[in-house]
């Protein structure tokens, strides 16, 4: 066994898997003989575990559509110019409230333009719909057959009392739901519905609204539209490729039931 003097440097090497295997035993013995170094090592191990766990959730987050689109070449990156300046925010994150408006869904134009929060909500809801409604086997994380769990889980995560509206009168059955990242650090619930012909609509709900507003929003190139409203501390959008009248009817029904559910 090689004998050499160890130092604090070796604590880092051992922690990072860079200590040669044949030195390990001697290192461990050195650590045992030096309580101060042993404590330091234990602390670094704990800090590393905390670092890893703080960022572990990022790996499970769905990849934002705008990032997939860059790789797949599906969207022109014309939003680059006004995309939030991440580096400025890094330098002066405290001063600047940058980044709330991720510049994705290029080419989307609003019909009834409200505040920017509205646009962001509608864009996120549409992006979620485009991404997940097209999926067959992976459209939802929790199926409608587990509706009670779905409601409890999403309510807890989003921070709102959430009921999945019954849209049978409008011809739609609940497929299930999933949890999504919303702007900033928020979370959103997405509930997916399907009619007899397989036409899908989604309901997108987040808890971070202090505004009161409503309107419709659509991409200039076609695709699904969103009917949204912001009220009573939550923001909600119904997205689908239905005639506007029908989408509005569905939205009204969903709105009524959500409000009733929240205040019940």
């Amino acid at each position: 066994m090689t004998r050499r003097d160890f130092s604090e440097r070796d604590i880092h090497m051992a922690l990072d898997g860079e200590l040669p295997g044949e030195e390990r035993m001697a290192y461990d013995a050195w650590l045992e003989a030096n309580p101060e170094m042993k404590a330091k090592s234990a602390r670094y191990i704990a800090d590393r575990a905390a670092m890893r766990s703080a960022f572990a959730d990022v790996m499970d987050e769905p990849v934002p559509a705008r990032l997939r689109q860059v790789v797949l070449g599906e969207a022109p990156s014309k939003a680059s110019a006004w995309r939030s300046r991440w580096w400025l925010s890094a330098a002066a994150a405290v001063m600047l409230a940058v980044g709330g408006l991720g510049g994705y869904v290029a080419g989307v134009d609003s019909i009834a333009r409200g505040g920017e929060g509205d646009d962001q909500l509608a864009e996120q809801a549409i992006a979620a719909h485009v991404t997940y409604a097209a999926e067959n086997r992976h459209a939802v994380e929790v199926p409608a057959s587990d509706k009670d769990h779905l409601q409890t889980w999403l309510s807890n995560r989003v921070g709102l009392k959430l009921v999945a509206p019954d849209l049978a009168a409008e011809g739609f059955e609940l497929v299930g739901g999933r949890l999504l990242p919303a702007g900033g650090q928020g979370k959103a619930a997405m509930l997916l519905y399907e009619d007899a012909k397989g036409e899908r609509i989604s309901l997108y709900v987040t808890a971070d609204s202090s505004e009161t507003s409503k309107g419709t929003y659509a991409a200039e190139t076609g695709g699904p539209e969103a009917v949204y409203w912001l009220d009573k501390g939550y923001a909600c959008a119904v997205v689908g490729s239905l005639p506007r009248e029908r989408l509005s009817d569905v939205a009204k029904s969903a709105y009524g039931q959500l409000v009733a559910g929240i205040s019940s």
């Binding site: 990032l67 991440w86 925010s89 890094a90 994150a93 980044g99 510049g103 650090q185």
Partner: peptide, 18 residues
């Protein structure tokens, strides 16, 4: 982990992918 803010971080990733 470099930037903390989710949107800023995704902007950096987007720049990288582009």
């Amino acid at each position: 982990s470099l930037l903390r803010d989710r949107d800023s971080a995704d902007d950096l990733v987007q720049d990288c992918l582009e």
